[in-house]
Amino acid sequence: MSKEMMAVLAFGLIAAIAVFMLVKERRGIAERKEARGGREVDVSDLIAFGSAAGEGKKTSGE
Protein backbone atom coordinates (compact mmCIF):
# COMPACT_ATOMS: atom_id res chain seq x y z
CA MET A 1 0.00 0.00 0.00
CA SER A 2 1.39 3.37 -0.97
CA LYS A 3 2.02 6.27 1.37
CA GLU A 4 -0.70 8.29 -0.33
CA MET A 5 -3.29 5.56 0.25
CA MET A 6 -2.24 5.28 3.90
CA ALA A 7 -2.68 9.05 4.27
CA VAL A 8 -6.15 8.90 2.69
CA LEU A 9 -7.16 6.07 5.04
CA ALA A 10 -5.76 7.89 8.08
CA PHE A 11 -7.61 11.12 7.30
CA GLY A 12 -10.75 9.15 6.48
CA LEU A 13 -10.54 7.45 9.87
CA ILE A 14 -10.09 10.81 11.60
CA ALA A 15 -13.11 12.22 9.74
CA ALA A 16 -15.24 9.17 10.62
CA ILE A 17 -14.32 9.49 14.31
CA ALA A 18 -15.17 13.21 14.24
CA VAL A 19 -18.60 12.52 12.72
CA PHE A 20 -19.24 9.77 15.27
CA MET A 21 -18.33 12.08 18.16
CA LEU A 22 -20.56 14.84 16.74
CA VAL A 23 -23.54 12.48 16.55
CA LYS A 24 -22.85 11.18 20.06
CA GLU A 25 -22.67 14.74 21.45
CA ARG A 26 -25.91 15.76 19.69
CA ARG A 27 -27.67 12.76 21.27
CA GLY A 28 -26.27 13.72 24.68
CA ILE A 29 -27.55 17.28 24.26
CA ALA A 30 -31.00 15.96 23.33
CA GLU A 31 -31.06 13.67 26.38
CA ARG A 32 -30.07 16.50 28.74
CA LYS A 33 -32.66 18.80 27.18
CA GLU A 34 -35.34 16.12 27.62
CA ALA A 35 -34.31 15.65 31.26
CA ARG A 36 -34.90 19.40 31.82
CA GLY A 37 -38.38 19.20 30.34
CA GLY A 38 -37.40 20.59 26.94
CA ARG A 39 -35.92 23.83 28.28
CA GLU A 40 -32.62 25.24 27.14
CA VAL A 41 -30.28 26.42 29.89
CA ASP A 42 -27.74 28.97 28.69
CA VAL A 43 -24.25 28.63 30.14
CA SER A 44 -24.12 32.37 30.85
CA ASP A 45 -27.28 31.99 32.96
CA LEU A 46 -25.61 29.24 34.98
CA ILE A 47 -22.59 31.45 35.58
CA ALA A 48 -24.72 34.44 36.63
CA PHE A 49 -27.51 32.66 38.54
CA GLY A 50 -26.03 29.32 39.56
CA SER A 51 -28.20 26.23 39.87
CA ALA A 52 -31.35 28.38 40.14
CA ALA A 53 -31.08 28.96 36.37
CA GLY A 54 -31.21 25.24 35.73
CA GLU A 55 -34.36 25.01 37.82
CA GLY A 56 -35.98 27.93 36.00
CA LYS A 57 -35.87 30.29 39.00
CA LYS A 58 -33.70 33.18 37.82
CA THR A 59 -35.77 35.76 39.68
CA SER A 60 -36.99 35.61 43.26
CA GLY A 61 -40.47 36.98 42.58
CA GLU A 62 -42.24 34.03 44.21
Rank of each mutant, 00 (worst) to 15 (best):
V41R: 02
A7I: 10
G28D: 10
K24I: 05
E62K: 03
A10V: 13
M5D: 15
L46H: 03
R32P: 05
D45W: 03
E55F: 05
I17M: 11
V19M: 11
D42N: 14
G38N: 04
F11L: 11
G50A: 02
E62H: 01
K58M: 09
M6I: 13
K58N: 03
F20P: 04
E62P: 08
V41I: 12
V19S: 05
R36C: 14
D42Y: 06
I14F: 10
L9G: 07
M5A: 15
I47P: 06
E31W: 00
V43N: 11
E55Y: 04
G12V: 02
R36Y: 03
A18I: 14
S60V: 01
A7N: 04
M1Q: 03
K3Y: 13
S44T: 14
G28A: 02
M6Q: 13
A52M: 04
S51V: 13
V41H: 03
R26N: 05
E55P: 00
L13A: 11
V43R: 15
A48T: 07
A18H: 11
A16F: 11
M21H: 06
M1N: 07
E31F: 08
E55G: 01
K33D: 02
V41C: 02
E25L: 11
A53N: 00
E40R: 12
A7E: 12
G56F: 01
A35Y: 13
A30S: 08
A7D: 10
M1F: 10
E34R: 15
R36Q: 12
F11P: 01
M6K: 11
S51W: 07
F20M: 08
R26H: 09
S60I: 04
L22M: 12
M1G: 12
M21I: 05
V43D: 14
I47T: 04
L9I: 15
G12F: 00
K24V: 08
A52T: 01
D45H: 08
S2E: 12
A7P: 01
V19R: 01
V8G: 08
V19W: 12
A53I: 04
L46N: 02
L22P: 05
A18F: 09
G50E: 01
A30C: 03
K3D: 14
A48M: 13
